[in-house]
Design a protein around this nucleic acid. Structure first.
Length: 663
DNA sequence: GGCGCTTCAAACCA
DNA sequence: CTGGTTTGAAGCGC
């Protein structure tokens, strides 16, 4: 069990396992963090650490180091493990009296043990982690980012968002220094070593907060949310001293062996082993995962299945949680290389939501949009966009939105002031990170705002993309949003919230979604009715989640990039999309949104009226409604009721302290 | 408790 | 454009 002695011990860890520590405790405020406040007493929320099943009593008080000013040293003297801030819902699992009780086996949470591989760590990690010593209090930030302990889904989303934020920033740092690879593993390791993993205990059945259809872009992501523990291995199992009690809990079918992935309800899975790249091939043995699967066949326990798909926007794989299966049959077979392998036939449990089957549908639609059932219009944009925008209604007979002109961009109904000159870099070919001569990088604070794969790295007050005056080519990574949509969208009838927007493509966090197109008007003109206001964008407030999207960056960087409303000063821009607009006019409000809006400049210098570009805040499975936080301030009377309704409809997602009942 | 071995990665380059 | 190479990490099990 963890106690304060353990924690003191953890403070003396080797450097590479140093916890992310508090050097300057911060108090979360409503709109960010109060940098000035030194007080830690009333507002800090202490969350009890993750504990194994058996533990029932939880200490209420925080470790003493929490309340004391921590010395400003890169090496912690008395570190507070991040686990004290970990949202934990495992307590809830135990006490829940639902009809399904997941089998759970006590498993020590990944603890801050002494270094496992000191030599290796010294070789590769020390420099990185040292540079990345965490200078501020992570605890409050993580709480803010992942919500409280009572909502497993929020915990998973917060953990995933923090991971990806870390990953994008490590990628950016590594790129600039032209050193290191595998930012995914570095981000994962950082989180593991700081006890930021959730669902530590292996369990049979669903993992709290992970839903069928959820997508992952790295193996390590499934690791840190407890869906599938092995970093590489395909079979996750609970091992036991009694060999016949070793049971499989999760498998990943990702094409490493000769599996047939065609049927969406049946999966024939090949056992592990005998396939090593470094050693001679041999017959598979009934041990480890193979043994676990055999026992699971006899015990008939549920097994989580993760299937993989090709990422349409990169060479990487996407992992899709396809829900629970059971093993029906098993046998041995000859692989193509002539050696014996184990085969297991799994059948999907009935009554689960669409998982991989949804992907088969969207792939068919992408190949030929005309195959989309209940389609009303093949291209709502009438070729104004790079890709067709399908209009569908699979709910009722509603025939389509009221008439508007589809335009892909903004039209300025007010004169623009030239407050800043246009971007004008001299980069040959494309802008590259770490180039001190790239004026565009300088304008963006020294770093290019996008990763090499075109993902937004951080949410900032303004992104300056390369302009027509720049010498770099069209392929420059600093020209993401100006090139228009890349996703296959459909505008669909929600039934209760009007028309909404979703994508046939899986979307990775940081992906550019679309611009808010329409007529840019003057703030003075607010004589619009409710209907017109429904299709109006106001740059009032980025939203709590959007403000906390950079939480990983906060932990890595020396200089403070704390986002507050001061950084994000309110923009006067109002975009009316009642008469003219694009897909963005169909984005609905949510208090638990999956998109954020980012101000972007590339074709004029009036920073008060930038382009409003939407980016994904988290990984979004295909066919998931895209939403953003409409904000509250500046909304005229009459609008309130509608917003409140929209929020209430989503209250299941944001019933916590984040649901702003004030609309 | 430590370390070696295995493991259906991921990114990059030739 | 793809297959081989490189870098890389968790956790089982001895």
């Amino acid at each position: 069990m963890e106690n304060s002695e353990d924690e003191a011990e953890k403070g003396e860890l080797p450097l590479e396992l140093k916890p992310l520590v508090s050097l300057a405790p911060k108090v979360p405020t409503l709109l960010g963090y109060d940098v000035e406040t030194k007080s830690t007493s009333p507002l800090l929320v202490y969350v009890t650490p993750c504990r194994p099943c058996s533990s029932s009593e939880q200490p209420e008080e925080a470790p003493p180091s929490f309340c004391e000013p921590t010395p400003k040293s890169p090496v912690p003297i008395k570190a507070t493990p991040i686990s004290v801030a970990l949202p934990t819902h495992q307590q809830e699992d135990e006490s829940s009296d639902g009809d399904y009780k997941p089998f759970c086996k006590e498993k020590k949470p990944a603890s801050l043990k002494k270094s496992k591989r000191p030599r290796q760590a010294e070789k590769s990690n020390v420099a990185n982690i040292k540079r990345r010593s965490i200078r501020r209090n992570l605890d409050s930030e993580f709480n803010l980012c992942s919500s409280s302990s009572d909502n497993p889904k929020e915990s998973v989303e917060g953990t995933m968002m923090m991971f990806d934020s870390l990953r994008r920033c490590i990628l950016q740092l590594d790129e600039k220094e032209d050193a290191g690879r595998r930012a995914d593993l570095k981000a994962g390791t950082l989180m593991m070593h700081n006890n930021l993993r959730i669902n530590n205990r292996k369990m049979i059945g669903h993992v709290p907060g992970v839903e069928v259809g959820d997508v992952f872009f790295f193996r390590i992501e499934m690791c840190i949310v407890g869906l599938h523990a092995p970093a590489m291995g395909g079979i996750d199992y609970i091992s036991s001293k009694h060999k016949d009690e070793t049971l499989a809990v999760c498998i990943i079918s990702s094409g490493g062996y000769e599996n047939d992935d065609d049927d969406t309800d049946i999966l024939v899975y090949t056992g592990q082993g005998g396939n090593s790249r470094h050693k001679e091939k041999h017959d598979q043995k009934l041990e480890r995962g193979n043994l676990a699967l055999m026992n699971s066949r006899n015990k008939k326990n549920q097994i989580r299945v993760v299937r993989s798909a090709q990422d349409p926007f990169s060479s990487g794989k996407i992992y899709i949680y396809d829900g629970l299966y059971r093993i029906e049959d098993s046998w041995t077979d000859k692989a193509k290389n002539g050696f014996n392998v184990f085969k297991y036939k799994l059948r999907r449990e009935p009554g689960q939501p669409d998982g991989i089957s949804l992907w088969k549908m969207t792939e068919k639609w992408k190949a030929n949009p005309a195959t989309r059932e209940k389609g009303i219009l093949l291209d709502l944009s009438s070729k104004a966009e790079n890709l067709p925008v399908c209009l569908v209604n699979d709910v009722d007979d509603e025939k389509g939105p009221s008439h508007f002109n589809y335009v892909a961009g903004v039209k300025y109904l007010r004169p623009l002031r030239k407050t800043k000159p246009l971007q004008c870099c001299k980069c040959p070919s494309v802008c590259l990170p770490g180039d001190p001569n790239c004026s565009c990088a300088q304008q963006n604070g020294g770093d290019l705002p996008y990763s090499s794969s075109g993902l937004l790295v951080k949410h900032v007050p303004m992104v300056y993309e390369c302009s027509s005056n720049c010498q770099c080519s069209h392929n420059c990574r600093n020209r993401i949003s100006q090139k228009g949509i890349k996703l296959n969208f459909e505008v669909f009838w929600t039934g209760d919230r009007g028309w909404g927007l979703r994508s046939w493509d899986p979307i990775r966090a940081g992906t550019f979604i679309c611009e808010y197109a329409g007529e840019v008007i003057d703030e003075t003109r607010i004589d619009m009715d409710v209907e017109e206001d429904k299709y109006t964008f106001r740059a009032s407030y980025p939203g709590d989640k959007a403000l906390n999207w950079n939480v990983g960056a906060e932990l890595l960087e020396e200089k403070s990039t704390v986002v507050t409303t001061e950084n994000f000063k309110q923009l006067p821009i109002i975009i009316r999309a009642n008469n003219e607009g694009n897909v963005a006019r169909f984005l609905n409000h949510s208090c638990s949104p999956n998109l954020l809006w980012q101000a972007v400049q590339y074709d004029h210098g009036d920073d008060s009226y930038p382009h409003i570009m939407f980016f994904a805040m988290k990984h979004i499975p295909p066919m998931t409604e895209l939403t953003y936080d409409y904000g509250t301030r500046g909304a005229p009377p009459g609008f309130e009721g509608k917003l409140f309704r929209a929020c209430k409809l989503k209250s299941c997602l944001c019933g916590s302290k984040y649901c702003r009942s004030l609309f």
